[in-house]
């Protein structure tokens, strides 16, 4: 399916114009991104973000994370299926996911995945440079080792 595009009088605005008009939303979104990163296990959150970025943009690698644990490998499979077609996440995959993570952790990881997927696409559509939320105090796990 292809979106036919905006009409000539759609008044389409740039990302900078939208954020200037809606600064509170930008602040809330950035804070929520930071919360999601903090709520999910740090390394797992970083793996999710890296894999989402890699799948959407075709750039990046998981090589810097070293050998992934069994739990992280399930998260990568889940992330891939989430992006390709969430309907394909079946009971078996969720059972494997649940075998490694508590309910609280599952919600945190899926929330982080949803945020990473959504806002990575948001950034790609507006052709924004890669960056972390400016008010995020979350250390980058990839820089900790």
């Amino acid at each position: 399916m292809t979106w036919p595009g905006p009409g000539p009088d759609s008044g389409a605005a740039s990302a900078a114009e939208l954020l200037a008009l809606r600064p509170n939303l930008g602040v809330l979104a950035q804070a929520l991104c930071a919360d999601a990163a903090l709520a999910a296990p740090g390394r797992t959150a970083a793996v999710v973000s890296a894999r989402v970025e890699q799948l959407i943009t075709g750039h990046g690698s998981l090589a810097g994370f070293g050998t992934l644990t069994d739990a992280e490998q399930v998260v990568v499979v889940l992330a891939e299926q989430f992006l390709v077609d969430a309907h394909g996440i079946d009971d078996a995959l969720m059972a494997a996911f649940g075998g490694h993570y508590s309910h609280e952790e599952q919600v945190a990881i899926l929330f982080h995945l949803a945020m990473a997927d959504g806002f990575t696409k948001f950034a790609r559509v507006f052709d924004l440079p890669d960056s972390s939320p400016p008010d995020s105090s979350q250390p980058n796990p990839r820089q900790e080792a």
Binding site: L18, L21, R22, N24, L25, L28, A29, A31, L32, D35, A36, A39, H103, E104, Q106, V107, A108, F111
Partner: peptide, 25 residues
């Protein structure tokens, strides 16, 4: 009620969702 497993995220999401639906251009 599923997001409520992570109360801080649920609270933040609710604020963001309310901001989006109730305000803006």
């Amino acid at each position: 009620t599923i997001l409520a497993h992570q109360p801080a995220l649920a609270k933040g999401f609710s604020a963001l969702y309310a901001q989006f639906w109730s305000h803006g251009v």
